[in-house]
């Protein structure tokens, strides 16, 4: 949470906070044309997600509603919106940036923590079972080469991913 607190303390408004992050740079260009919304396959099947509204809420500074809400996790990352946005708002990236903020504050859905722990343990987000490993030879596939889990651990600690994740575990 350090970074979010730092930014809050620095008096950054929420749109500025998002815009200052990797992925969030383009958020302020949005002029609410709604191209993203009609591009979005998820918005069309649930009232709980609408990229246009998510950006609008963020631009109005409704930080808590955005960060603690369900919506940011409902993006299916299909990039249809981003592809067609006439203002070149990188909407999918903005949503990643919002998720990154949520994660820093310990708000993270269980499936994501499963991915994270698998990553830290095996170097893969999905574990390869012993059964499947054995099956490879019967199929005539070469044995799997070891993953670079050690290097990965060092990268994750360099970026602070480890700490983020541990804090989430404590919660």
């Amino acid at each position: 949470m350090e970074r979010a607190e730092r930014e809050k303390a620095a008096g950054l408004s929420f749109p500025e906070e998002v815009a200052s992050r990797l992925g969030g740079e383009t958020i302020k260009l949005c002029y609410q044309c709604g191209t993203c919304a009609s591009s979005c396959p998820v918005a069309k099947i649930t009232p709980n997600f609408n990229p246009r509204e998510l950006i609008k809420l963020s631009l109005l500074g409704e930080r808590d509603e955005v960060i603690s809400g369900d919506a940011i996790w409902l993006c299916c990352s299909c990039y249809n919106c981003q592809e067609r946005c006439p203002q070149k708002v990188e909407i999918a990236e903005v949503i990643y940036a919002l998720r990154n903020i949520a994660f820093e504050e310990g708000r993270i859905p269980p499936i994501y923590s499963e991915f994270a722990s698998a990553l830290l343990r095996d170097g893969r987000i999905i574990k390869v079972s012993k059964f499947v490993e054995k099956k490879r030879s019967t199929l005539g596939l070469p044995p799997l080469k070891p993953t670079g889990v050690e290097a990965l651990t060092r990268i994750l600690s360099a970026t602070g991913f480890n700490k983020l994740y541990e804090r989430r575990e404590r919660k």
Binding site: Q32, C33, G34, T35, S38, S39, A43, R52, N80, R84
Partner: peptide
């Protein structure tokens, strides 16, 4: 709303404008 696309319905062959009314 700015439409995301104009498409032709594969069955009716009519043009359809896909848009969100905000």
């Amino acid at each position: 709303g700015r439409p995301t696309e104009v498409f032709m319905d594969p069955e009716t062959k009519r043009l359809i404008v896909d848009v969100e009314d905000a």
